[in-house]
Structures are given as structure tokens and as C-alpha cells.
């Protein structure tokens, strides 16, 4: 074998070995590297109760309630399979609204998620305002599933 071909085989073998290692690592990480748990995970008992964690999903339509103290809100996060009630005290981002995605950081206490931080999750759709208001009503909920 010519030295050039020998080097080619060596480099190809090295690339294959490294790729295999990465696939193995990612397969092992696939649950741990997830950024948030969904309501279905909580219903299935996979989420750590009482520990700091993140909850992600769609804010259910019509579920945002402002409590009389003016700074606390309650809403329900859903992933289409299960629902988790959330309570949060503070200011939410502008894009936090019903029917869109959100991620909450906090703890699960007696079935209610007590959030310290609320992040709005933007989806991959971009459109001008007149189209958006129509389409948002139909498409909300499609982009959550991952």
C-alpha cells in the first residue's frame, strides 16, 4: 500500500472511531442534556420532586389568572398529554402569552410548580403581524413536541 493510501485509511478509521464515540455519548446524554421536563414527564414520575428543575410546554389558552395581590399569576402548562399548574410571582417576558411556549424554572410542590423564573420560548415560525394573528390561533401547539 502506498503511504498516501495508508494515511487515508488511518484518517478514515480515526474519523469513524470519533463519530462512534460521539454517538454513544449523545445517546447516553439524551435524557440528561434536555433543557426542561414536560408535564407528561411529571405525570409519569420522571421529574425530580422538590428539586430545582425546569418545566417547559405550552401555556394553556384561557389559563392565565392574575391573583388579587397584583404580582402573582397562575397558569397551566400543557404538552397535549398532561397538564401542570404553575404559580409565579414577578414580571414575565413580553412574549409570554397564552397559546405559546414557555419554560419555567422552579420546584414541584404538591403537584403545583412554583416558578422562580419564567422564560418565553419562541418557535421557528416568523411572519408579519397580519398573517401571524390568524395563523397563531391554528398552529399553536404544533411546535412543542420534541
Amino acid at each position: 500500500m502506498k503511504p498516501k493510501n495508508q494515511r487515508l485509511v488511518l484518517v478514515a478509521a480515526a474519523i469513524a472511531a470519533v463519530l462512534a464515540a460521539v454517538l454513544l455519548a449523545m445517546w447516553g446524554l439524551r435524557d440528561r442534556a434536555s433543557y426542561f421536563y414536560t408535564p407528561a414527564d411529571i405525570a409519569g414520575g420522571q421529574a425530580p420532586a422538590g428539586q430545582a428543575m425546569r418545566l417547559g410546554g405550552m401555556v394553556e389558552e384561557g389559563s392565565i389568572k392574575h391573583l388579587p395581590d397584583g404580582v402573582t399569576i397562575r397558569f397551566v402548562v400543557t404538552d397535549g398529554k398532561a397538564r401542570t399548574p404553575v404559580v409565579y410571582r414577578g414580571i414575565v417576558p413580553d412574549l409570554f402569552r397564552e397559546g405559546t411556549g414557555a419554560v419555567a424554572e422552579g420546584r414541584l410542590e404538591n403537584g403545583t410548580f412554583v416558578a422562580d423564573t419564567i422564560l418565553a420560548k419562541h418557535d421557528e415560525r416568523y411572519m408579519p403581524p397580519q398573517l401571524g394573528n390568524l395563523a397563531a390561533e391554528h398552529k399553536a401547539g404544533q411546535t412543542l413536541e420534541k
Binding site: 449523545m26 439524551r30 442534556a33 434536555s34 433543557y35 426542561f36 414536560t38 417547559g56 419554560v103 422564560l119 420560548k121 419562541h122 418557535d123 421557528e124 415560525r125 416568523y126 411572519m127 408579519p128 398573517l131 411546535t143 420534541k146
Partner: peptide, 25 residues
């Protein structure tokens, strides 16, 4: 963004088209 749940949105432009409206794209 496909393998893991992330805060970052999924890809907008794929082989099957784009979920960005043409007027913005």
C-alpha cells in the same frame, strides 16, 4: 435542537421549505 429539548427554537429553513414567511425571509 432536534435531539434535545432546548430553549432555542428548532430549525426554520429545511429541505421541505421554510417556516419564515417570504416577506421576512
Amino acid at each position: 435542537v432536534l435531539w434535545w429539548r432546548t430553549l432555542h427554537q428548532g430549525q426554520s429553513i429545511g429541505l421541505s421549505g421554510s417556516s419564515i414567511d417570504n416577506s421576512i425571509l
